[in-house]
Design a protein around this nucleic acid. Sequence first.
DNA 1: CCCGGACCAGACAACGTTGTCAGGCGATGG
DNA 2: CCATCGCCTGACAACGTTGTCTGGTCCGGG
Lengths: 340, 340
Amino acid sequence: MRKRATMTDVAALAGVSLKTVSRVVNGEPGVSPDLVERVRRAVEQLDYRHNLAASNLRRGVRTQTIGVLLHDLRNEYAAELLRVIDDHARPLGVAVLASSLDDHEDREQVLVHDMVTRRVDGLVLMPASPDQSYLLPEVRAGLPVVAVDRPTAGLAVDTVVVDNRDGAHRATEYLLGRGHVRVACLTDRGRLWTARERLRGYLEAITEAGLPVDERIVVKDLVTADEATAATRALLDLADPPTAVFAGRNDLSVGVVRALRERALERRVAVVGFDDFPLADLMSPAVTVVSQRVTEIGATAAQLLFARMHGEAPTPRTVVVPTRLVERESGLIPVPVTFA
Amino acid sequence: MRKRATMTDVAALAGVSLKTVSRVVNGEPGVSPDLVERVRRAVEQLDYRHNLAASNLRRGVRTQTIGVLLHDLRNEYAAELLRVIDDHARPLGVAVLASSLDDHEDREQVLVHDMVTRRVDGLVLMPASPDQSYLLPEVRAGLPVVAVDRPTAGLAVDTVVVDNRDGAHRATEYLLGRGHVRVACLTDRGRLWTARERLRGYLEAITEAGLPVDERIVVKDLVTADEATAATRALLDLADPPTAVFAGRNDLSVGVVRALRERALERRVAVVGFDDFPLADLMSPAVTVVSQRVTEIGATAAQLLFARMHGEAPTPRTVVVPTRLVERESGLIPVPVTFA
DNA sequence: CCCGGACCAGACAACGTTGTCAGGCGATGG
DNA sequence: CCATCGCCTGACAACGTTGTCTGGTCCGGG
């Protein structure tokens, strides 16, 4: 396990100066063919590999690296975002440092700090904490930042989100339009912007329909699919259970379906979920969802980021990517006729 | 967009020497309290951030970064691996550079080269090309490499795989044991080791059962779920269609189920898939699979890698993580009685 | 009063690379 | 035959940091 050869080693072996090696390695013109050849051979012989860090340091150039900090890389939504961003970065010679925040406030600050320490050229962040003003010095120092999925607070940066309120509104309206009057709502932690917006969309739709809001069928702060399953069981145990459920996140939808299955009610209670998920169309009944165009979100985030990294510095922009209501079977389940 | 402050700037503002700033920043002892305070204030005022690259360069220490190159980060299996590896790396102060190879041979070499250029301290690789001997110089130069999912060829490194042959053998045997005599097999590209091994397991089981191998129901080189769907349609169109299917990868299983659904045969044809997938248990019928313990694979890979990064240099080890046959409904579907 | 030691601060070189500039050499033209 | 030019090549400094080593100050003890 020897140390890696440096340009100095190559120069010594080739019998040329350090600088000549540098020129050959960087493909600069003005080196005579036989010297090029000698250097090439020495490089080969020593297995010399260019050191990007040292090169970037001297050049005063950026690191050709961006950071991508998302909620959970194992989650389908985050994984897709990462993949798309990487696909945009690679052709530009930019590598991606990725990590998961688990919506943990401290982790956000720690990891962002680590990224800054590594002098990433840009950052894609799914904000986990309620305040990003700690980023102000970095942004002022020229760090391009793009927020995805949720906006930042306390600091304006480029942002790519969907209209969560509108999507939830439409989902709820869809169920109400099919005759349901008892529509339950399950959402994520209230400190998350997306959860709050989706809840708002639901409440607006209910209110606009002239229906009362029944707090017993509005369940908040659900983190895992299992919690959604448990919550659904409780809903079904009510004296007047809901006839339809709006699930505010893809794994919550899964949790709901699981609970309905347990009681063989999956064709008796209507479900519309927020976020599509793989195989939603293959379940029986297939699950109706409000779908986010994840690929488009990722591509947009990448474009905004690279534009800024390439020197464009407009005032922060917010892009709202439209959602689509994907009609499948679970949303079509009617209100049971066996009713008082 | 000013340039970031350096230690020199901080030193100037604090009225101390560069080295004193270095000491304070690194928490070294032996600086008088009031100087520490002055430096702290200057750091604050200038938003100074430590430059890890420069620090590492000088220290001759590694970059505190590892590379993770997998097939496709959006794939559930790869995403989970990445997540687990990151969870192991973070507490050690190590960041993860991740990218997708798409099983593209050139991309493997290009991306590995890029990682070397960035002087990663270690590499987790899902080999995409048939020969990794190009890695020899890097390994000799002390780069720890761990192969996951598939072994390397032309170069021995630490490896974490499952017994694909055995898993496929058991899956096939399971179907044969339930009376099926026409069991189809769908597999990935033959140049992939996993695909070859799984095919081998299938063929062995068929042969051991004294059955003939019918090439018409052994379909190879399937890359996408759609291709599996098309292949399944063709199988069903045969004069003597299979009564059971062994699908050699998780999205191929999905493709098979989709085709069966189209013809309302999902409860008439048995299915066992290789690799579990989310919601496999929620489909109807729930899909029986050979499951890999992905978390364990990732954790093992991380452990092997970090052991080597910390100086252990035993001869390359191969860890075979066991698979489990997860019995669900689709594997229990019996041979139709309406039979000649 | 002076010496020794403890303690603290800074000068300098070096990590591996590249930009700048000066110099050597052969060829060309007057 | 010499001045000039162009083409190569290399010496040197610098990127931002840290290890080493030197030197200064202050204190207590002899």
